[in-house]
Structure formats: structure tokens, C-alpha cells
Simulated assay, not measured.
Amino acid sequence: MKVLLLAGGFGTRLSEETDLKPKPMVEIGGRPILWHIMKLYSRYGFNDFVVLLGYKGYYIKEYFANYFLHQSDVTIDLSTNQVSVHNSASEPWKITLLDTGANTMTGGRVKRAQSFVGDEPFMLTYGDGVSDIDLSALLQCHREKGKAVTMTAVQPDGRFGTFEASDDGLVSRFLEKPRGDGSWINGGFFVCEPRVFDYLADGDATVLEQAPLQNLARDGELVTYRHPGFWKCMDTLRDKQDLNRLWASGEAPWKTWG
């Protein structure tokens, strides 16, 4: 099953980094967040990726073009222009790097991958969010429900800490960044049937999160998989710092691979 990764946005709210590189290449623990997402999928046996490029897509192409070399022990014979690879720690990934246009919207990017997907179900997620989601359970849910799209629903952490107090104002304890107000949001990590492309017929201006998902819901073809565990989107510099702190602690919740 192919995994489509949306990696073409401008990342304007992380401009401290994205002036120089695309958002999915911003590093967490010395590795692009895109790598972390791919490692999660690979942990569940999904190794065939289609990366949907846009803004500064060449940066991602160059990274993966040299990835095998950087992960290997090599001997370079300059007299014969030969390279011998002795050991490689590269993952068994097949990566299609698809230029979907700098200004194309999310739905338009997915639509451009239709010929690469064919008539098979596929997975899809954003290139800036990590999670400890059980992808096998997600896929099982999708198959059981039999709908065109299964969307993972998550409850993000609150932005600010809060506290508990009695009616007379006496504070009993502080709570650091509790879960949100009980509402669920779109966390990405979709599973899609090929008929989803019928909902993406409006060209490059199609925004997946608007008419396509609304129409899928109207037709009874959109179901959610609720993930109560860890999920975090790297939307701001503060988010990046939080993720790097978690990784440096050695207890990053999304690191479910060995």
C-alpha cells in the first residue's frame, strides 16, 4: 500500500526555518520531521512512499538522492571514479518524489498522484505531524467501516497550563498543557479508497479539508478513527522546540520503531 505525504506547503508560521527549506525538512533531533513520519509508517511495514512536493521541493529531492550514500560506509576510488558500498543502514524505502506545483492546494496535490496510486487503497498524511498512532489498527478500522476515507481524529494538547480551584478560589493543583476542550480535530493519517479521487475534480485549487471532506461526509463516505494518544503538529517555532526537547529526553512518544 502506498503512502502519500503532503510536503509542498509554504510553512509561513515557521518562517524562521522555512525561508531556507520546506517545512517537512525542518529537523527534530537532527533528522527532518518527514523522516520521523516515514519511520512510523515503516515500523508497520509501509515502505512505498509518494512525496507530494511543492515549495522548495528540490531540497527534498537532494536529501533523498544522497540518503543512501550518507547512510553507508563507502570507499571512493578517485582514479577510477568508482564507489564501493560496504555497509548500509538505509531503510527499505521506495520513494517517488512528485512535483505537484508550488501553489497547488492539498486536494490538488493528492489528485496529481492519481496515476501513481492506480486502483488501490492508499494512506495519506501531512508532512508536519508526528504521532504514536497504531497504523495497523487504523487500517483495520478502515476495512471494517468500508467507507471511501478514514480520517484520524485527535485531541491536541492545550496551549496553556491551567489549574483546579474550589468555589472559594483556593487552588488545589496546577495542570500543565491539559487536553483540549473535549473536541476532536483532523489529525491526518488518512486511509483512502481510490474513489476519493472523484471528489478531487476541481483541479489544483482543490483544498482537501474543504469541499472534498464536506462532500464525503454528506455522502456518508467519511469515517473517523479516534486516536487518544500522542499527536503533535509542528506549526510554530515553539512546536519545533517542544518536539526537540522530547527527542533529546530519550522519551519521544512517537518513536515507536526500534
Results as ranks from 00 to 15, higher is better:
R173N: 01
R179Y: 08
R109D: 00
L34I: 15
T12H: 01
D19C: 07
K111H: 08
D235N: 03
K240S: 03
G229H: 14
T75Y: 07
D132M: 14
V191D: 07
K177P: 14
W247T: 14
G129N: 08
H36A: 12
L5Y: 09
K111S: 02
N81L: 06
E251H: 15
D202E: 03
A153G: 01
T80R: 12
T104R: 02
V3R: 13
L34S: 14
T236P: 06
H227G: 05
L139D: 12
L200Q: 03
G54N: 00
S42W: 14
I76W: 05
S249C: 15
M234Y: 09
G180F: 04
W93L: 10
I185R: 05
K255C: 13
K232A: 13
S90M: 15
I37Y: 13
H142E: 08
A148I: 06
Y225G: 00
I28S: 08
V51D: 06
S131R: 13
F122H: 09
F163E: 03
W35D: 11
S88R: 11
K61P: 11
T100K: 05
Y58E: 03
A148N: 07
R159V: 04
A165V: 01
L97G: 04
F189V: 09
S115R: 10
G29P: 15
E164R: 00
T12I: 02
Q82L: 07
L78Y: 11
E221A: 03
K255A: 10
D235Y: 00
Y63T: 10
V3N: 13
G182P: 01
K21G: 08
D48F: 12
D119L: 06
A89P: 11
I33E: 10
T224C: 00
A211W: 11
W254H: 13
F189L: 04
R159A: 01
L78I: 14
E144C: 10
F68V: 13
I60Y: 09
A165K: 04
C192G: 05
P194I: 09
L124P: 08
T224Q: 01
L5V: 15
Y59F: 13
T236K: 03
M123A: 12
R159S: 04
G220S: 10
F197N: 06
